[in-house]
Design a protein around this nucleic acid. Structure first.
Length: 279
DNA sequence: CACGAGACCTGTTCGC
DNA sequence: TGCGAACAGGTCTCGT
């Protein structure tokens, strides 16, 4: 489930004590049970479990799709990938089928990293910059301006969709929000980045920020068994709407494959033809 | 630099 | 009803 809005939703809930237990900041992690070893990239599970014990949670953060737990000495980075989730349970709870890591807390609750598909990953680092430093701009921060987006687009010759999914170009967009943003900006996913006009870049910038903010406002999107509680799926204009009429023009929404990802667009609103150059 | 294919995984849904 | 194929919110690596 995790694109930027879903990760942010989970972060806020854990911060406010609305995800199965009390607020995380202030609690102390007493250890770690890593049930699927590949989850822990660095350090190795045994070392991570030992090193995290006794560290107090100072704050929670997010960078792109990375969930950040600022501890006394280290930062725990968690990437939910396709099916990850984080929540609290009372520590006497029995381990459930898809739980990949469990962190007992001083409060009597445990932080659970659940992940059916086992793609999720975590790191315990004193300095997270080797990982976070590779990320592109944070789309909702002030430094990410329409001007900056346009300038960055000018330097690339890739198709828009794969480029927007590239986390080193921009951090946080995934398949859903990319399709929704491109539709809102009336841009075809296969348009080449450096052919985008300044006006189009403005529209794209606004659309990206709009869909992410709207996603957060609605607590993310829920489309299958993986994630519940969000409402953004009710706002989808094209994602998962193949064959259904575009709300703007009535043309059936099309599904194509771009970079091996299902991609949804309105072929009428998001024309590939060179734009209104003369109109 | 850009692209496509294959991996990594499990669960659900679709089509015959 | 049953069963295999296709598909899923992500990213990495390798070959061209």
């Amino acid at each position: 489930m995790p694109e930027l809005p879903e990760v942010e939703t989970i972060r806020r809930a854990l911060e406010n004590g609305k995800r199965g237990g009390p607020p995380l900041p202030g609690q102390t992690i007493t250890g770690a049970h890593i049930l699927w070893p590949r989850t822990a990239i660095e350090p190795k599970p045994v070392v991570l479990a030992h090193r995290i014990g006794g560290q107090k949670i100072r704050a929670l953060g997010r960078r792109g799709k990375y969930f950040l737990v600022y501890l006394s000495r280290d930062v725990l980075l968690i990437h939910l990938r396709m099916s990850g989730d984080l929540y609290l349970v009372p520590s006497n709870y029995q381990i459930q089928r898809h739980q990949r890591a469990v962190f007992p807390l001083s409060s009597g609750y445990s932080l659970v990293f659940e992940d059916a598909r086992k793609f999720g990953r975590m790191w315990l680092l004193s300095d997270p910059t080797p990982i976070l430093g590779k990320l592109g701009p944070e789309p909702l921060e002030a430094a990410f301006t329409a001007e900056a987006l346009w300038a960055a687009l000018q330097k690339r010759r890739r198709q828009l969709k794969p480029l927007l999914l590239d986390q080193t170009f921009l951090a946080g967009l995934g398949n859903i929000y990319t399709d929704e943003a491109l539709h809102r900006a009336r841009l075809h996913p296969l348009r080449i980045a450096n052919t985008i006009s300044r006006q189009e870049a403005d529209a794209l910038w606004q659309s990206i920020r709009f869909v992410l903010r709207e996603g957060i406002r609605q607590n993310g999107a829920s489309i299958d068994w993986v994630y519940r509680g969000g409402g953004f799926q009710n706002t989808f204009q094209v994602y998962a709407r193949a064959g259904q009429p575009c709300y703007t023009c009535g043309t059936p929404v099309e599904r194509i494959v771009v970079g091996q990802r299902g991609t949804h667009l309105c072929p009428h609103c998001q024309s590939l033809e060179s734009l209104p150059e003369n109109s």
